[in-house]
């Protein structure tokens, strides 16, 4: 068995814009590999290079041992690709779309039904509905079915959960976990950092460069600084005050709390308390927390920017 995805020193520019710079990573068999990064980081470009739709300026990439330039025809037979934009026929029904994509990949829905069954039963009640009239989550499930229907060896999912409600997002990731168990290597991209925890390994991509490749657990473990969650009645004033405090290392809003790290770590707390007392914040609370994957990414992106 070949390594599903190998990327080596891939560069790609569009005019003066460097979309990808020196990208290298591998995805192992049965691995769920996450590509995490903001919009415009170069995720889609990388997907298109791997799915043979674009040519890299420099570097090599193979999918199942097949070169993305030389053996593009062979790759097109074994890869499942779900583009970032919903790309099914909106005026065709769910059923027709699925049959169409099964046929153009020289197979039938029935032949690989066991693979898509779990997902398909959820959209089966709407099988006579035009794909364009489905909800966002349903559309993505259908798109996944269509990408899976020919039993691909490698699955490329470009932002499959963007614009999807939280419940459907969770369902979607559950499905990916089960697909992984069937031995399909999956490369998935997402702008949502919380989804990183669900991957076996993640790579953080920013401005066309990979920042770190590791398991989510390792990435969290590497985060050494103590962290506090802080809140008060007037959050906006609080975040400004905290950022103005010279001992503050970083301060970001996460939901209803601010996540705070200090330059001197635990030793800096007393100074902070004294500083905040002069600001008179109402309903002020502060407690120590374990850093999450998002904190790590914020940290990584920051150090990279400096």
């Amino acid at each position: 068995m070949q390594t599903p995805i190998v990327v080596q020193d891939v560069h790609k520019s569009f005019g003066a814009v460097k979309a990808l710079h020196n990208i290298s990573f591998t995805v192992q068999e049965g691995e769920l590999f996450g590509l995490i990064g903001p919009d415009g980081a170069g995720k889609s470009t990388l997907f298109r290079i791997l799915t043979t739709l674009l040519l890299a300026d420099k570097g090599q990439a193979t999918v199942n041992g097949l070169d993305v330039v030389k053996d593009y025809k062979a790759i097109r037979k074994i890869a499942g690709y779900m583009p970032g934009r919903f790309s099914l026929y909106q005026d065709l029904t769910v059923e027709e779309n699925l049959h169409f994509f099964a046929t153009i990949f020289n197979t039938t829905v029935e032949a690989n039904y066991d693979l898509i069954e779990e997902i398909y039963v959820q959209i089966a009640p709407f099988k006579k509905r035009p794909a364009g009239k489905l909800s966002g989550g349903m559309k993505q499930k259908l798109a996944l079915c269509c990408a899976l229907v020919h039993k691909p060896a490698v699955l490329f999912l470009d932002e499959p959960t963007t614009g999807v409600d939280p419940v459907s997002r969770k369902e979607f990731w559950d499905m990916l976990q089960r697909l992984k168990q069937k031995g399909i290597a999956i490369l998935v991209s997402t702008p949502y950092m919380d989804e990183a925890m669900l991957c076996d390994r993640v790579a953080l991509i920013q401005n066309g460069q990979l920042l770190n490749i590791d398991t989510p657990q390792h990435i969290i473990a590497q985060f050494s600084k103590p962290m506090w969650a802080v809140r008060a009645k007037h959050m906006y004033r609080l975040i400004q005050d905290l950022r103005a405090f010279p001992g503050t290392d970083s301060c970001y809003a996460f939901g209803e709390y601010l996540h705070l790290t200090l330059k001197d770590g635990t030793a800096g707390v007393d100074a902070l308390q004294a500083y905040l007392d002069t600001k008179h914040h109402e309903a002020f609370t502060m407690f120590s927390i374990q850093a999450g994957i998002e904190d790590c990414f914020m940290e990584l992106m920051n150090t990279e920017n400096v």
């Binding site: 097109r76 890869a79 690709y81 020289n106």
Partner: peptide, 9 residues
């Protein structure tokens, strides 16, 4: 959709 058609065989 051309993107998917191209990626197909």
């Amino acid at each position: 959709t051309m993107e998917i058609l191209l990626v197909s065989p």
